[in-house]
Design a binder for these strands. Structure first.
Length: 604
RNA sequence: GCCGGUGUAGCUCAGGGGCAGAGCAACGCUUUCGUAAAGCGUGGGUCGUCGGUUCAAAUCCGACCACCGGCUCCA
């Protein structure tokens, strides 16, 4: 039997059955619920008579391997609800499904292999016994709600990995080990970018000088791109009376996730969970002429959301989120032009990071109108405008119903990182509802009050989450322009400290971030420390360099040094070095393509 | 929030009812070095927190806090 990428799904699904059998033999009374194939493997949910942990997985896996040779042939037969009852009386989950299918007049089928009968919609065509018994592996134990509903009982889910060959399984495990080494939760503190304190609380990262530098450098780049397109900075308080959110509709929809504050006089306030309502009030400060529009407000600022404790995860999900937020208040006739301007910003920004972008049209879910503000016709209109823009851009933009914001549809940008994972990053949203609720208008050519519309745009989205993504994308080895420390100067001994200071001053004069380590440790040790900190350039200086007014760029640094006129050298003069560094920073160059960052030039 | 796991020095971890341990880091002295870890020495702890059991708790039990893997949620 040849296992291909088409039939591996079938194998994975069959393995879920085998897992169910193994668990039922080891834990009599266990009820197996559902068990599908998933990306990279399969899972099976159980209600178990005993608690199990990851330590038990090896035993279960051995049992699966012991049973495997008997799984030579599948038989299937259509059954009646009565027959299901007879066979699965003991299993309330199978019975719940069977009753439901019967009600919907769906066919009920049993699939049997290796003496194990299961109620299943089928697709098992391959003799499982022929697979390599080492091409699968049980992976994790987790809780999962029956049918994905948190009101239901929590079952025990066992995850397994399964591939066509053991080699592929090993490769997958190696890739996962690679991802773990890049984990921002480990790399961030190791590179001294951020920290958490138990006294401050979960989900509330604290930013060190280096991390703050990184945040500010990224935000300055976004601001540079916005500023060139007519945006202006605004600033707002981080709290508000609840009245603002009652008007906007956020109070009703998100009151559980708001951090609330009661003043000593008993008035109710909230920490802002988003910025748009505040920004509407900046727009609403006066009557606008159509000539003054668009008004483009940019504001990088923190918002606060009372996330469930179990949701928090490093920087990827936090309780205080820095948004690089912007709102454009404009006439409907200006929407397309403003949208395209933001689109350009997104492309320029992500080009500099080396992310490939895909576009997604996030639309409302017509089946759940209660989840959204406004009326169907304004949604239809707004979504039509976004479709036109995507078409005009000539990009492939798959539509995702149900992914819209509650006030309007979005164009979302999905970025693929260096190890192939996809993330939603930038977003541009078209909002006809907030302007309605806050009665935002301008006076048009005919002296009438004209309803305006609002665009919401974030380039990085949440800076915390964005940093989590790029720390992992770059494995902590940032491009020169982003590195908190750009050059480490390492004199072979303190005899050359003066020359080192000369090199340092030459770089610092040009705004380069430099660190010089005194020679109270061995050369090797200082080089190692700089490598671990992933400092892009290390220059070693000693007698040779002092005599010739050069620096020695450590040859095995991330990439070769290139002078400003394009010459590759490890022994540039001080002036050549400064000019080359400056050019590389200004050009926001990425010296290595992300996939090259996997090799051992980068200490992980 | 729910299920499971984990919590010992700044970091990585050992120990497991009877004196709190190692390596790295830090600090001091010696070394001044040519491309990934010099040598010797010193300091560092309410063993996550609070409570219980016990003559005795880092160790056993409970609650809480925090972290990890999932589930649910995610403007």
């Amino acid at each position: 039997m040849k296992i291909t990428h088409e039939n591996i799904e079938v194998i994975r699904h069959s393995l879920a059955h085998l897992l169910a059998m193994a668990v039922r033999e080891l834990y009599p009374g266990a009820q197996n619920a559902i068990g599908p194939a998933i990306e990279n493997g399969f899972y099976q949910d159980f209600e178990l008579p005993a608690q199990i942990s990851e330590n038990d997985l090896l035993t279960i896996e051995k049992k699966m391997q012991e049973l495997l040779p008997r799984w030579t042939e599948w038989t299937s037969n259509t059954v009646t609800l009565e027959e299901v009852k007879k066979e699965f009386d003991w299993n309330k989950y199978k019975m719940e499904l069977a009753n439901e299918f019967a009600k919907e007049k769906k066919t009920l089928t049993f699939y049997t292999c290796g003496g194990f009968v299961d109620l299943c919609k089928g697709g098992h065509t391959l003799p499982l016994a022929e697979i390599d018994p080492h091409s699968f592996k049980l992976d994790r134990v987790a809780g999962a709600y029956w049918r994905g509903d948190e009101k239901n009982k929590m079952l025990t889910r066992i995850y397994g990995l399964a591939f066509a060959t053991k080699k592929e399984l090993d490769e997958y495990l190696a890739m996962r080990a690679e991802a773990e080494k890049r984990d921002h939760k480990k790399l961030g503190p190791a590179l001294d970018l951020f920290t958490f304190s138990e006294l401050v609380g979960a989900g509330l990262p604290l930013w060190t000088p280096k991390g703050t530098l990184l945040r500010n450098t990224l935000d300055a780049f976004v601001w540079e791109l916005r500023s060139a397109r007519g945006y202006e900075r605004v600033e707002i308080p981080h709290i508000t009376k609840k009245d603002l959110y009652e008007r906007s509709g956020h109070w009703d929809k998100f009151k559980d996730e708001l951090f609330r504050i009661t003043t000593r006089e008993g008035h109710e306030f909230a920490m802002k969970p988003m910025n748009c309502p505040h920004h509407t009030q900046i727009y609403a400060r006066k009557k606008w002429s159509y000539r003054d529009l668009p008004q483009r407000y940019a504001n990088t600022t923190m918002v606060y959301r009372d996330e469930q404790s179990g949701e928090l995860a490093g920087l990827a999900r936090v309780r205080c989120i820095t948004q690089d937020d912007a709102h454009v208040f404009c006439r409907e006739s200006q929407v397309k032009e403003e949208f395209l301007k933001i689109w350009d910003i997104v492309h320029e920004f992500y080009g500099a990071i080396g992310f490939e972008l895909k576009v997604r049209l996030s639309l409302h879910d017509p089946k759940h109108p209660e989840k959204y503000l406004g009326n169907p016709s304004s949604w239809k209109k707004a979504e039509g405008i976004l479709r036109d823009i995507a078409r005009e851009k000539g990009v492939d933009a798959p539509e995702a119903p149900g992914e819209a914001a509650f006030y309007g549809p979005k164009i979302d940008f999905m970025g693929k990182d260096s190890i192939g994972r996809e993330w939603q990053v930038a977003t541009i949203q078209l909002d006809m509802n907030m302007p309605e609720r806050f009665n935002l208008t301008c006076v048009n050519e005919k002296s009438e009050d004209e309803r305006i519309v609002m665009l919401h745009a974030a380039i990085m989205g949440a800076i915390e989450r964005y940093l989590a993504i790029i720390i992992e994308h770059f494995a902590g080895a940032f491009p020169l322009w982003l590195s908190p420390i750009q050059v480490a100067i390492i004199p072979v001994s303190d005899k050359f400290a003066d020359y080192g200071a000369k090199v340092r001053d030459a770089l610092q004069k040009e705004g380069v971030r430099v660190e010089m380590k005194h020679a109270d440790e061995t050369l090797g040790k200082r080089i190692r420390a700089a490598e671990m900190q992933k400092i892009p350039y290390m220059v070693i200086i000693g007698e040779r360099e002092e005599k010739t007014d050069t620096v020695n760029v450590r040859p095995y640094t991330i990439a070769p040094f290139v002078t400003s006129d394009g010459k590759q050298t490890n022994e540039p003069s001080i002036n050549e070095f400064v000019a080359g560094i400056k050019k590389e920073i200004e050009g926001k160059q990425i010296r290595l393509e992300p996939h090259e960052r996997k090799n051992n030039q980068i200490p992980l």
